Simulated scan of single mutants.
Amino acid sequence: MIGRAGLAALVAAVALAGCTPAQAESVVRLPAATFDPAVKASRATAIFAGGCFWGVEGVFSNVKGVIAVESGYHGGSKANASYDRTSTGTTGHAESVRITYDPRVISYGDLLRILFSVVADSTLKNRQGPDSGPQYRAAIVPLDAAQRKVAAAYLAQIGKGGYFAKPIVARVEPYKAFYPAEAYHQDFMRRHPSNAYIVRWDAPKLAALKRLYPAMVRAKPAP
């Protein structure tokens, strides 16, 4: 995310450029995963990175079958797991989300479909939207061998499908540890819908989810 002081300048520049919310992110309707084995458990966990965690959390909390979403940091050490340190881009952490979901309702493959359709541009390296640096990389963090196979298969599937003009650079990363972000980051999009950053960059993602995949949208956001 950009610094708070830069938000007003960003929004003003956007207005002058005539950029509309629909242009905020690349939106691509992607197919369902062809390799997505059923999971019988009632609860599972997924960890993704896709730019500023405000919007990633905000979108996934509106997905049917998602039980809870938590913003946090993945990829670095516990000592560096803070917003101030992660924002330097030197910690190895990416702003990430940990999703608890019911795989009988929403599959891991469908979560990946949403991630790369409306949340994150898989062709951008170390940046998303207005934010740049390795802490804003797009990444999948499988938590077991089954998730790893689905993730690899889906990246290969959409990479061969001709959905993007550029090569996919989103990567699959080994799990290290997930550290929850500070309390003021949690549920940020739901608590601050009028925030300038949210309006410009994240609300369009949620709108795209509802437009492209209405059957996957919850009636009310998950906590």
Rank of each mutant, 00 (worst) to 15 (best):
A13S: 10
V14S: 09
L16C: 13
L16A: 15
L16S: 13
A17K: 11
A17N: 09
A17L: 14
G18Q: 08
T20F: 04
P21R: 07
Q23D: 15
Q23K: 10
V27K: 00
R29C: 04
R29H: 05
L30D: 02
P31H: 03
P31W: 05
A32C: 07
A32V: 12
A33W: 04
F35M: 06
P37L: 10
P37I: 08
A38C: 00
R43N: 15
A44V: 06
A46I: 00
G51A: 07
C52N: 08
G55R: 00
G55K: 00
G55H: 01
E57M: 05
V59S: 02
S61D: 10
N62V: 06
V63A: 01
K64D: 15
G65R: 00
I67A: 12
I67P: 01
A68M: 03
A68T: 13
V69G: 09
E70Q: 15
S71P: 07
S71N: 11
Y73F: 15
H74V: 08
S77M: 00
K78C: 06
K78E: 06
K78F: 02
K78V: 03
S82A: 14
Y83T: 09
S87P: 07
T88F: 10
T88S: 13
T90N: 12
T91A: 12
G92F: 05
A94P: 03
A94N: 11
A94L: 11
E95A: 12
S96L: 04
V97W: 04
V97P: 08
R98P: 02
I99M: 06
T100K: 02
Y101R: 07
D102V: 08
P103Y: 11
R104D: 01
Y108I: 05
G109L: 01
G109Q: 07
D110A: 11
L112D: 05
L112K: 08
I114L: 09
F116N: 02
F116W: 07
V119K: 02
A120N: 12
